[in-house]
Amino acid sequence: MMDPFVTFCLRMGDNALILAQRTGEWCGHAPALEEDIAFANMGLDLIGQTQLWLKLGGEAEGKGRSADDLAFLRTERQFTNCQLVEQPNVDFAHALMRQYLFDAWHLPMLDGLTQSSDERVRAVSAKVIKEVRYHIDRSRDLVIGLGDGTDESRARMQGALDELWPFTADLLASDEIDDDLTARGVIPDPAPVIEAFNAETAATFAAATLTVPHTGLTRTGGRNGIHTEHMGFILAEMQYLQRTYPGVSW
């Protein structure tokens, strides 16, 4: 088992990094200028959050790896982000639903982390949660507006929810690493986080006239390095420069 604290930092950082990469793909392509700016800005927040978590993970690991080393020099199986954040943009509905589902978990998770027994985790999460409150403020509003919108927008939002919902299992999953950290008070007990996620999504989807699919289908594994087929393509693009010109800097 890898060091639990390091793994936790990498999981938080990798979620933010891969979602930022996906979010950044919207730059110049969003359906409205305001949303283009919003996605780009949010991607920037997520990159900043990535730096905080990966820096902390690198320091805790003690092998001299920087946030950049961790982002650009690891391979697919070494990334521990949940599978949700690596799912492709497809259309605005998918990108927005992915963002909303992530935010609905991220906010209560960070809320718990601000009470962490670890001072460094408290400092990072108290910083990050301020930004994430604005993220969910936007994504929730848009999910409701487009869900309870036209026939076309509603159909697309429902389609995105049907496709992405199984991946929330990965977002809410926990293992012996989490158990160890919860026991030490470093991370919150998963139960209240899941409860908050369920309450948040139930209220929003009711207002958005969307229905959570009850197929029972779940997808997990990302947190342990098992990814969907999309992950390799993201890394190929993100890590291109460091792989082509190892050690290059400017």
Binding site: E34, I37, A38, N41, M42, L44, R138, D141
Partner: peptide, 13 residues
Amino acid sequence: NISPRGSTPCKAQ
């Protein structure tokens, strides 16, 4: 409010 984001992350339009 026109947009929750503006020319920089710290601003809204």
